[in-house]
């Protein structure tokens, strides 16, 4: 596996919405490279014909009946909001879609 570059770290940070400082990019590039280098061993089993395990217990079909349960009150729902207006969460301008 190739080492993790500073640019890759910057890309990951963008995907993960983390505003990293230049020195953090360098720091993380080194550390992630070390960690990935150490854990990459798992790919030893990549070509083994083994089913992946996503859930530790083999449960299936856990469902609930389509019955209404009480919601929070709007006051409770908004109780942690950093800003609110008209009983809605107030957020800075959204870019992107129009």
């Amino acid at each position: 596996m190739p080492g993790i570059t500073r640019e890759e770290v910057a890309h990951l940070a963008r995907l993960a919405r983390l505003e990293l400082k230049p020195e953090e990019l360098d720091h993380f590039a080194g550390q992630l490279d070390d960690i990935i280098g150490a854990v990459a061993r798992v790919s030893e089993v990549a070509d083994q014909d083994v089913p992946p395990t996503s859930h530790p217990l083999p449960l299936t079909n856990v469902m609930r009946a389509d019955e209404v349960r009480p919601s929070l009150t709007p006051e409770q729902a908004l109780s942690g909001a950093p800003a609110q207006e008209q009983q809605r969460f107030k957020v800075p301008q959204i870019l992107g879609e129009d």
């Binding site: 389509d66 209404v68 919601s71 929070l72 709007p74 729902a77 908004l78 008209q86 009983q87 809605r88």
Partner: peptide, 27 residues
């Protein structure tokens, strides 16, 4: 057109007050 949301028991009825049909899960 289910009575409740896909992953929580909040009602799907239209025309209710803003954020009146929310719970920890759908928030």
């Amino acid at each position: 057109g289910t009575r409740t949301k896909m992953f929580c028991g909040c009602s799907t009825e239209l025309g209710q007050d803003a954020n009146a049909q929310t719970c920890p899960t759908c928030l």
